[in-house]
Design a protein around this nucleic acid. Structure first.
Lengths: 182, 182
DNA sequence: CCGCCTGAGTTCATTCATTGAACCTGTCGT
DNA sequence: ACGACAGGTTCAATGAATGAACTCAGGCGG
């Protein structure tokens, strides 16, 4: 991002965080990684992001240690992008952003719930489970669509997200008859 | 920001949040507002942001209901920008961003601590006080400089932030002999 | 009353980033 | 041999950010 070489900024950890995840599209890529999206094409289809920008964001997230490339087939060689431990640690940030928008912006409905997979209760603002009281790790969060979610039926990734789904587990996507027109 | 008219994005609360606070500089303006900065000139001096960009960000934050203009003198008429309740609700997001950078990025030291003003203990990742156990509201957080913080002595806002300071309370800034050269 | 100062912007040319479309590359199935 | 496919790169056009200069209204000192 390059906020300049100013002292105040380089020293502030919030500014440093924003240099890594503050660019346009970056946090949406990370969100999708939590949702179980792992492949270039699936990010492309789900986000509607220009190919060059996606390639650039995946590369900088990898360099920052947020995502990691993992080979999922040898030939042709294909990699998928998986959240590292540092990437998974962004979960509270993403959750609090989402909770903020649902609670404080006009006209934002909440088309998905984040539930504690063990007990089914909806997470609080800090990611804690109101029933158990504990902070729920991202892998134990169940992403569940709610009434009002209106996905693009042409979009196989949106369709796959209609099924309740644990964060971080790979999404099963039906790629038959999909053209990426971009 | 305008991420396009895609359904998946418009419906996702994280994407909606990013449309409001996801642009370059925006979250740093909000951070400074938590630090007690309220005036155009002080944001300018502290952030080193271009004037036009600052004016545009302050305006969109006001429109989004994150900041509110308050008149602090009648003549000449001067306003300051103060966080609304919705703006204050961004505190968990900012804190988790900062904690993430300190904990998971290379070479990020933590030049400031966030302490619970009542007991002096340092906040955890979710803004909770490890001693009291409760989540500390932003107004009860004491921002404290730590060893290694190396402010620009020419910058009166950086200087003012050397004193431990409660979030959200206006910063007292010595404006004598400051030139804004930009 | 005059000229200068201050805070809070606006204007504008230059530079930089994003966009969308087209193209490229290695491999596979047929 | 041929097309499809995943995962990119290239490139022209557009839009946003930058930094410097300018504006404007209201004090203030002399």
């Amino acid at each position: 991002m390059g906020l300049g070489k100013d002292y105040a900024q380089q020293q502030c950890s919030i500014a440093r965080a924003l240099e890594v995840v503050g660019e346009r599209w970056t946090l949406l890529v990370v969100r999708d990684a939590f949702y179980g999206i792992r492949r270039y094409k699936d990010f492309l289809v789900h986000l509607g992001i220009p190919r060059a920008v996606l390639a650039s964001r995946l590369q900088s997230l990898e360099q920052a240690g947020v995502l990691e490339k993992q080979r999922y087939q040898q030939s042709p060689p294909r990699d998928e992008y998986v959240l590292t431990e540092a990437g998974i640690a962004l979960w509270p940030t993403l959750l609090s952003l989402g909770k903020w928008a649902s609670g404080h912006l006009e006209g934002v409905d909440t088309p998905r719930s984040f539930l504690h997979v063990a007990c089914g209760s909806e997470l609080g603002a800090y990611g804690q489970c109101p029933a158990c009281g504990d902070v729920v790790p991202a892998g134990d969060v169940l992403l569940t669509p709610r009434a009002g979610l209106d996905p693009d039926p042409e979009n196989p990734v949106s369709r796959a997200l209609l099924t309740p789904h644990r964060l971080l587990t790979p999404l099963e996507i039906d790629h038959t008859s999909v053209r990426v027109q971009q």
